[in-house]
Structure formats: C-alpha cells, structure tokens
C-alpha cells in the first residue's frame, strides 16, 4: 500500500449502510455520520486538528 485510500481512513457503518439515518432518526451506532474512522483516519484527523488552526 503506497497511497492511502478512503477505506483505509474510514469504513461504512454496518448499521445504517452509510446513510447515517435509520427510519429518519440519526443512526445510533455511528451518531449519524454513516462512517466510522479507522486508526489511520483518527491519527490523521488528530494531526490536522492540532496543526490546522494556526
């Protein structure tokens, strides 16, 4: 693996199949996001959060 693909960063929620809602309610498993971050995704997100606001 040389390039990071989207599914290395996040995976679709099994509960709502990436829709983010279940019968018009926010999906309780992913909090309505539809996707769940991987360890790599979370690492990049934390990095950006720490360095992007300056």
């Amino acid at each position: 693996m040389s390039i990071i693909a989207m599914d290395d960063l996040e995976q679709q929620c099994w509960e709502c199949n990436e829709k983010g809602t279940i019968s018009d309610e926010a999906c309780p498993k992913c909090d309505g996001k539809g996707y769940i971050a991987t360890a790599l995704g979370q690492t990049l997100l934390d990095f950006f959060k720490r360095h992007s606001d300056k």
Binding site: D7, D8, E10, Q11, C13, W14, E15, P28, K29, C30, D31, I36, A37, T38, A39, Q42
Partner: peptide
C-alpha cells in the same frame, strides 16, 4: 481483502467507535 473489524463501546449504548480494514 477488505475484512472489517469494528469495536463497539462499553456502556449503556453500544456505538461503533472504531473500525479497521
């Protein structure tokens, strides 16, 4: 390829808090 591992939270509500491919 593409096996999903998802961790579910401990506590009252079980959420998917982490995933891995």
């Amino acid at each position: 390829n593409g096996v999903n591992v998802i961790g579910l939270t401990r506590g009252e509500s079980t959420k998917f808090h982490h995933s891995e491919k």
